[in-house]
């Protein structure tokens, strides 16, 4: 399971440090299925936060999890995209390829939602090859339209609502990313596999 460290966050919460976001997502899914009682279990880039727990209970339960026993693959959600984003050319420049190649790579990649953050329903989607990273804009836009499909570092994300943002926007979708009235409010909760389709 690699180096795993429990870092107390006061007396009623702790962070468990793991190798990467894939391991964090796996640990969070496992902890939920194992019935570990917590107010919130929050996977992120290389940690899982357990809030509302006795850190000792978490430490005692952890040996039941191994990073190798990956969570079963989640459902596949297909997201239709119009590839008309203002930063498509910029991404192509970073990747030293044509705009069409950017679209081809994006639509042929199976992404996995690893964690949410930033805004309700905003999922960090992993799956791009390690050499296909892009930097954020030096100056973030003050408004990114809802449904914007965007890239930053090695991540892909979709803005559920209008917000400021520095990710490179490659397209738009009208997929309903967040609806508090749905049983599962987020369209792409952690563990979901995502396929983008050009339309």
């Amino acid at each position: 399971m690699g180096a795993m460290r429990v870092v107390p966050v006061g007396e009623r919460a702790c962070l468990v440090e793991v190798r990467d976001a894939v391991a964090a997502a796996s640990l969070a899914v496992w902890a939920r299925s194992a019935g570990l009682a917590a107010d919130d279990i929050v996977p992120a880039a290389a940690t899982v936060l357990f809030d509302g727990v006795d850190p000792a209970d978490v430490a005692a339960a952890l040996p039941g999890w191994t990073a190798g026993s990956a969570a079963p693959p989640g459902p596949v959600v297909r997201v239709p995209v119009t590839y008309d984003g203002p930063d498509l050319e910029r991404v192509a420049e970073h990747w030293r390829c044509q705009v069409g190649d950017v679209v081809d790579l994006h639509t042929s990649t199976e992404f996995t939602a690893l964690f949410c953050g930033f805004a309700p329903g905003f999922s960090y989607l992993a799956g791009l090859p390690a050499d296909r990273t892009v930097p954020r804009l030096a100056t973030p836009r003050s408004r990114v339209a809802p449904g914007s499909v965007a890239l930053a570092d090695g991540w892909c994300g979709i803005y559920p609502t209008a917000s400021p943002g520095g990710w490179l926007v490659i397209g738009t979708t009208d997929a309903p990313l967040w609806d508090a009235d749905r049983e599962t409010p987020a369209l792409l909760p952690p563990g979901t596999r995502v396929r983008f389709e050009a339309c």
Binding site: D40, I41, G121, A186
Partner: peptide, 11 residues
């Protein structure tokens, strides 16, 4: 509303 932080929702 505890229990939704993993979907990006503040408490």
């Amino acid at each position: 509303r505890p229990g939704w932080a993993h979907l990006g929702v503040a408490r």
